[in-house]
Design a protein around this nucleic acid. Structure first.
Lengths: 107, 107
DNA sequence: CTCATCCTTAACCATATGGTTCTGAAACCG
DNA sequence: CGGTTTCAGAACCATATGGTTAAGGATGAG
């Protein structure tokens, strides 16, 4: 599986996007990440493995707990693919351009 | 399947990304899209159906041929998700920021 | 050393996915 | 009308995916 496919398929699952969202402010344990969901803890462990293999998170230990931490690189890779795509395409991204403008103006 | 999941899982397949790439300059028939690949024509038809259901393409007829055409909206949706995510995350996108700077300066 | 805690792995299951071949529908060509 | 071209659909297959429960490894607490 190439890198982009791994990233996009990792992002394709709503539970995994929620997990990434929960991690945006820092590290969290498996139990903390599993709490908001109605799925079992081993299911969350599987999702974390997928995210790790896509490079979206790295993992470490603290006592018996396993900590997950976001990694920026794959998100950049995915965003760049989309932006590059647009660069080679005739049509513009209209409202996306506006959004980017806004983002540039509030640094 | 929610919209983002459909878009990301459509983008997760390399063949589908190649098809989108081939469509960046305009419409194409199924045969034209299938030619570069070592898969059968029905396989390409299936991929086109996935892309259509994700909203990434629309389809029309010209004689016996079926034309596929790119749609910008889902690409915008996906890009915005990634950009928004970054907006709520502490770390910056480093080189992505540079890329965006470059894009803003060559309009 | 023993035990509890936290999490991963194994085994299993149902459904989805990506591929095939074969068949047939839809539109033009003569 | 009949044939050709272009493509979609059906049926089938192998593997991947997302879920479960049950068992067990690793670390810290007592």
């Amino acid at each position: 599986m190439d890198q982009l496919s791994g990233i996009f398929s990792a992002l394709a699952d709503p539970t995994r996007r929620e997990i990434l969202w929960a991690l945006r402010r820092g590290e969290a344990t498996v139990a903390e990440l599993a709490a908001p969901f109605s799925v079992s803890q081993p299911a969350v462990s599987k999702h974390l493995k997928v995210l790790e293999q896509a490079g979206l998170i790295t993992r470490s230990r603290r006592g018996t707990a396993r900590l997950s931490r976001l990694q920026a690189a794959p998100l950049k890779t995915a965003t760049e693919w989309l932006i590059d795509y647009r660069a080679y395409w005739g049509e513009s991204f209209d409202r996306l351009d506006d959004l980017l403008d806004e983002l540039k103006e509030q640094p």
